[in-house]
């Protein structure tokens, strides 16, 4: 039985492949903890309602809305953020594709789109445009880079298939 009065606890999880621990407030979401405890800024709270996808992280292989996910639920999980995609200086296929197609402007939503692209291509290596839109429909880009983003996903799919 857990102590239900304490509003803080220590969580342990795997962050971008490394085991980590953090002392968190139970009222903190995973995006806040990534920023405050680990200095990772790629997951960002913008709309605060799970609509824009700027806060996306991948938890146990599934993309989730960081700003609506209690950090406590990361306890024991494996969390991947956009910072965990590149291998040293070598960018992932998705990251390369977003640069090569010019699929971002201000860049604030970009990590979310890249992580959703990874989720899509992990589940469907050869998606058609409808499937691409389906996966990305929960991410918003106020700069309106959608046409280039769809191109980026197609390019990333090709890069991954040929890798």
């Amino acid at each position: 039985m857990t102590d239900t009065k304490n509003s803080r606890r220590t969580i342990r999880f795997t962050l971008n492949g490394r085991p980590v621990a953090a002392d968190i407030g139970l009222n903190q979401n995973i995006t806040e903890v990534l920023q405050d405890s680990f200095g990772l800024g790629g997951s960002r709270e913008s709309c605060g309602q799970g609509l824009c996808g700027c806060c996306t992280v991948i938890m146990d292989g599934k993309a989730v809305t960081g700003c609506l996910t209690l950090a406590a639920f990361a306890d024991g999980a494996s969390v991947t953020t956009v910072e965990g995609l590149a291998d040293g200086e070598t960018l992932s296929a998705e990251q390369e594709a977003f640069i090569e197609t010019g699929a971002f402007q201000c860049g604030f939503c970009t990590p979310g789109f890249i992580l959703m692209t990874k989720q899509l291509l992990d589940e469907n290596p050869d998606p058609d445009d409808e499937e691409i839109r389906h996966y990305l429909s929960g991410n918003l880009c106020r700069c309106g880079a959608y046409p280039e983003i769809v191109k980026a996903v197609r390019l990333a799919a090709g890069k991954r298939r040929n890798a």
């Binding site: 790629g42 960002r44 590149a86 990251q95 640069i99 860049g107 604030f108 970009t110």
Partner: peptide
């Protein structure tokens, strides 16, 4: 700033 933006490391005052 492309690499910084796709790796989540671009500087924003937000961060």
């Amino acid at each position: 700033e492309g690499r910084a933006k796709v790796t989540g490391r671009a500087e924003y005052v937000y961060n």
